[in-house]
Nucleic acid binder design. Structure first.
Lengths: 107, 107
DNA sequence: AGTCTACGTATAGACAGCCTACATATAGGA
DNA sequence: TCCTATATGTAGGCTGTCTATACGTAGACT
């Protein structure tokens, strides 16, 4: 997976993976890897800053917890985050449609 | 169309639009706009450097021509460019599949 | 003649997000 | 003790896209 290709889609991925249930950063990385069948292996240096950005934007709410002696920062989707996710999904459709219409070899 | 989203896909777009016939930069921009139904309106500051990159990589061959008193640099796809385009197409499929599998709300 | 728009190529510098590499720390098994 | 998995985070680099600008021709309109 080309690194540049992810640009601008990371936020949609994070919001989407948090739609079902709140997760902490490490679990989010695993969820992305599992859901994509191993194609998405996102480094921590990408995820943690992105989560902070989304929190600052009001799309996520983070909270510290302790589980088995380890500190975790668990993020949940806010209402604004849900709205943003819907927007990201339609943007994704428009994006793939636009690129696809050019890349399609049949035309 | 978010600018960051284009990152890493520009080269595929350029190669694809040149698959049928050689075109010059200005015509490429128009072709992208038309093929995408207006969704892709790429500025010259993006296209011209990208064309030079692809030429340097050996995927395009550029040639100066004069038409109606105007200088044009026409680019055609090389054999290596065709191979690269095929690779870009399969990369695009893998990319949309990976992102789609995460973004799909049904899972 | 002067102005405007479309055509056509190109560069400089700003911007931003993803990356690598590193730092820190606990738990548990070999 | 050492290694791996778990867990969060930052600093700095990289690079491709963008905005803004520059240059120039052709043709239409006033």
């Amino acid at each position: 997976m080309n690194a540049d290709a992810l640009r601008g889609h990371m936020e949609a991925l994070l919001l989407s993976v948090l739609e079902r249930e709140p997760l902490h950063g490490y679990a989010i990385i695993e969820a992305l890897r599992e859901r994509s069948g191993g194609a998405l292996d996102v480094p921590t240096g990408t995820v943690y800053p992105a989560l902070r950005r989304l929190e600052s934007a009001g799309y996520l709410a983070g909270e510290w917890a302790v589980s088995g002696g380890r500190k975790r920062r668990t993020y949940r989707l806010t209402d604004a985050g849900r709205t943003a996710l819907a927007g990201e999904r339609s943007a994704w459709k428009a994006f793939t449609s636009a690129i696809g219409s050019v890349l399609d070899p049949s035309r």
